[in-house]
């Protein structure tokens, strides 16, 4: 790794000011993506701004209608949390499928959402539940947040502070993990919200996570059992790789949606 400085600000405004003053700064949360990239010299910031000292970014709370999780919350804390288990148990189940126990002890939900790896699991929950992303300067709806592979609506110096997940009436996530990396080849979250059905797909999309609006509409208008038979996914733009060709991925999305819907029924 190249040499760099590390600072640990105690106020959000100081963190943003330091970012803008430095020639090349990056925010550091759990480091589980950033540190390996720096070791590989894919990233070479001169200043690392450690976000672990900012109280607004910590903590998990249940407001009745929604669950708020601080961006600096580590995966392991989400898994252990009685508040999460009570409010949105399926979110904890999804988090339990991310990486391994050591990575979950360091990696954070905010770092993962800001990074927007197309094969990450969390986008399925953010988009599937219609979360609100709370930053140091505004609130962003999940539907406006994902702009493509590794690209989000966050401005360069913007800090994701917390995520607000509306509670579903029922939700289920199913994932096909990559046999070597464990990331999602595809992952599908199906949620019945007060306002209607939402279905989100991660891992498979050519432009990152997306809503499967065809299935949402079919669920809205008819019986759950018939919904999957009615939809046509042949036009969906999915990633095409030798090991996981496009047609296989489209089929996988349907299998995983069926698995999720099956788990909702029981």
């Amino acid at each position: 790794m190249n040499e760099f400085q590390i600072i640990r600000p105690a106020a959000l405004s100081d963190a943003v000011a330091a970012f803008n003053d430095a020639e090349e700064a990056m925010y550091l949360s759990g480091g589980m993506t950033l540190i390996p990239s720096m070791k590989a010299r894919l990233a070479a910031p001169q200043l690392l701004i450690d976000l672990s000292g900012l109280p607004e970014m910590q903590g998990i709370s249940d407001s009745g209608l929604s669950l708020r999780i601080g961006a600096m919350t580590r995966w392991a804390e989400i898994l252990r949390s009685d508040v999460v288990a009570g409010a949105i148990p399926e979110l904890a189940r999804l988090v339990g499928q991310i990486a391994d126990r050591h990575v979950r002890n360091r990696g954070t939900i905010g770092g993962s959402i800001a990074n927007n790896d197309p094969a990450a699991d969390c986008p399925a929950a953010v988009l599937g539940l219609g979360a609100t992303l709370i930053t140091d300067r505004r609130e962003i709806a999940a539907d406006d947040f994902y702009l493509g592979l590794f690209t989000t609506a966050l401005e360069e110096d913007e800090i994701l502070v917390a995520i607000d997940f509306p509670k579903p009436q029922a939700a289920a996530y199913a994932k096909h993990p990559h046999p070597a990396s464990g990331y999602a080849v595809a992952g599908v979250m199906v949620a019945r919200m007060a306002q209607g059905w939402r279905v989100a797909v991660t891992g498979a999309g050519a432009d990152g996570a997306f809503r499967l609006t065809e299935l949402e509409a079919a669920l809205q208008s008819g019986p759950v059992e018939a919904a999957l038979e009615k939809i046509d996914v042949s036009a969906i733009q999915v990633l095409n790789e030798p090991a996981f060709p496009a047609d296989f991925r489209r089929q996988l999305i349907l299998w995983l949606a069926r698995e999720s819907l099956g788990r909702l029924a029981v």
């Binding site: 640990r8 550091l28 070791k39 990575v103 360091r106």
Partner: peptide, 13 residues
């Protein structure tokens, strides 16, 4: 008391 991958943690943090 929590296991971590020490190759991916900056000692100074």
């Amino acid at each position: 008391g929590e296991t971590v991958k020490s190759c991916s943690v900056l000692a100074a943090t």
